[in-house]
Nucleic acid binder design. Structure first.
Lengths: 111, 111
DNA sequence: AAAAGTACTTGACATATGACAATATTTAGA
DNA sequence: TCTAAATATTGTCATATGTCAAGTACTTTT
């Protein structure tokens, strides 16, 4: 396999990894509508502040979000809105996979 | 946040997690063209057989691939080719992110 | 049909990475 | 400078990874 694509793959894996947590997906859901500061996420995702901050750092390291200080607050936003397309496509995959499985179960019940 | 979407998000996170490894991305690259058996992956991804087998199990558990025994061999294929669209979109994101960063470096060098 | 061989999977271990909660740091205002 | 609020970091525990060895399933050889 080409050396270049190996390195790209590692970056891809890093981004996928950043997306691979329910709490981080919730954080991104909150960022669909607008930018917001850390304290805005807390009631929305239902987690401790330190935990939210930690997960935001992971998203930031992967380049999915960027932030800006505004006085005491730090405001986060997505760097590239295409990330939502990716999440939406994966959701479709997950749902069609669930449907496939339930069809299978129905067929098995019939026999 | 709605209870239903919480559960969907956990499934999504599980699939993202399965994609979050360079070796598993390589395995999927090999599966772009056609189904293949475990021994076909080994020279392609450059890993031990047991390791490949472990990673295939993770992809299978996430519902990304399925397999079938054919004599001694076990043949794997993707369950839903849309997974490649997701990988391709993420690759675009990663590359445009790299470009953005290199632009930033250029600007900094100019000043 | 037993033995040997092939293709793959599973389990056990050491090490690396990730998650959560307590603690620390930074910042703004009195 | 002191206090309080917002956010980040650290320590501890759990989970993931890669390697080796053993196990399973099927095929071929004797």
């Amino acid at each position: 396999m080409a050396r270049q694509s190996e390195e790209i793959m590692e970056l891809e894996a890093e981004v996928f990894n950043a997306l691979a947590h329910p709490l981080r997906l919730k954080i991104l859901e909150r960022l669909r509508s607008s930018a917001c500061c850390v304290c805005n996420f807390i009631p929305y995702v239902g987690a401790e502040q330190s935990n939210v901050s930690h997960h935001l750092a992971i998203l930031k390291k992967a380049g999915i979000v960027r932030c800006e200080k505004k006085g005491l607050e730090v405001w986060y936003e997505v760097t590239d809105a295409n990330i939502f397309k990716i999440i939406d496509m994966l959701e479709e995959c997950v749902i069609s996979n669930l449907k496939r499985k339930s069809e299978l179960l129905k067929e098995m019940a019939r026999k």
